[in-house]
Simulated scan of single mutants.
Amino acid sequence: MNGTTTTPSLPHWLTPRRLDRAEQAVIVALWLLLVFRVWQSSAGNPFAPLMLLTETTVLLFVLLRRPTEAISMRFGDWLLAITATAAPMLIMPVPVPDAMVALGSIALGLVAAGNAVQLAGKMFLRRSFGVAPANRGIKTTGMYRLVRHPIYAGYLMVHIGLLMMMPSLMNIALYAIGWWAQILRLQAEETLLSQDPQYRAFMQKTRWRLVPGVF
Rank of each mutant, 00 (worst) to 15 (best):
L146C: 07
R21I: 15
S168V: 05
V35S: 01
T56N: 12
P133S: 07
F129Y: 06
V158M: 03
I183S: 10
G3R: 02
V131T: 13
R74M: 06
T85F: 05
L59T: 04
D20F: 11
A22K: 02
F47H: 14
G137I: 00
R37I: 04
S168W: 06
T68V: 03
G114T: 00
D196Q: 11
D20S: 12
M157H: 03
L192S: 02
R126I: 06
N135T: 02
M73F: 10
D20A: 11
M203L: 04
S128Y: 06
P95R: 05
L52T: 07
E55K: 08
P49H: 00
S168G: 09
V111E: 00
G178K: 02
N135G: 06
I82M: 15
F124T: 15
A99H: 13
P67E: 03
A132P: 00
W39G: 07
P49Y: 01
Q204W: 03
D98I: 13
M1D: 14
V94F: 00
A181H: 09
H159S: 10
Y199D: 03
F202Q: 08
V62P: 02
T68L: 01
V26D: 10
L79P: 08
A116E: 04
T85N: 13
N171G: 08
G44Y: 09
L30T: 03
P212K: 03
F75L: 15
N115G: 06
G142I: 04
S9A: 14
V117A: 05
Y175K: 15
A102G: 04
M100N: 15
P197D: 12
L184Q: 14
H149C: 09
R148N: 06
W31S: 07
V94W: 01
R21H: 12
S168A: 12
P150K: 04
T68F: 00
G76Q: 11
A188V: 07
V38N: 04
S194L: 08
L186K: 11
L193P: 07
A113N: 07
W78C: 14
I151P: 05
